[in-house]
């Protein structure tokens, strides 16, 4: 069974990922197990406000993790295209879009107030919204009969250990 989703096309292959990991850790054997797709909402806002030297009129974007609701600022809009994926490779969303919008606005607001030198909060308006799926490789590593698992971002190669056994 498949489902149509928005995702990224240009991903590292399983060979590339294992080669990359092998470069960092020569004594381990890496075996790719599967590619799974993790859901995020992409929200883009227009920011308008006054500053000491003129006006602020910029775009700002974030992703909201559709499972845990945690926000993250992003540098550029993700390049997405439609794809048909096996249902069992796609994680189910647990947060509806309406709730994600509330989280997104709060997250962007906090990020601005926390980190920007501003006298007053600028106004923010939602201009784009979409649900997309980011691919992660699940890779099994083996070193001296000890087994470990990693999730590897298939777009960037960044990784994190996972407690899956």
């Amino acid at each position: 069974m498949t489902t149509p989703v928005l995702t990224s096309d240009h991903i590292f292959s399983d060979e590339e990922i294992c080669h990359f990991l092998k470069q960092m850790e020569k004594d381990s054997i890496f075996t790719p197990e599967c590619l799974v797709y993790y859901p995020y909402y992409f929200l883009e806002y227009e920011m308008k406000g006054k500053r000491w030297l003129g006006h602020v009129h910029k775009k700002i974007g974030c992703t909201i993790d559709s499972i845990s609701g945690v926000g993250s600022l992003i540098d550029t809009s993700p390049e997405l295209s439609e794809a048909e994926l096996k249902t069992n490779k796609v994680l189910d969303i647990q947060i509806p879009l309406s709730k994600a919008k509330v989280y997104g606005e709060r997250f962007i607001g906090r990020s601005i107030s926390y980190k920007m030198k501003i006298f007053r909060m600028p106004g923010i308006t939602l201009t784009k919204e979409s649900l997309f799926y980011r691919p992660y490789w699940i890779v099994k590593g083996m070193k001296k009969k000890k087994c470990f698992h990693l999730i590897v971002d298939a777009l960037t190669g960044e990784f994190h250990p996972v407690g899956y056994k």
């Binding site: 993250s72 994680l91 999730i151 971002d153 960044e158 994190h160």
Partner: peptide, 15 residues
Amino acid sequence: SRHLNLEAGNLGKYL
């Protein structure tokens, strides 16, 4: 990459 902590937890459960 520490920022993948939540994804790692959720993917672990899913798997």
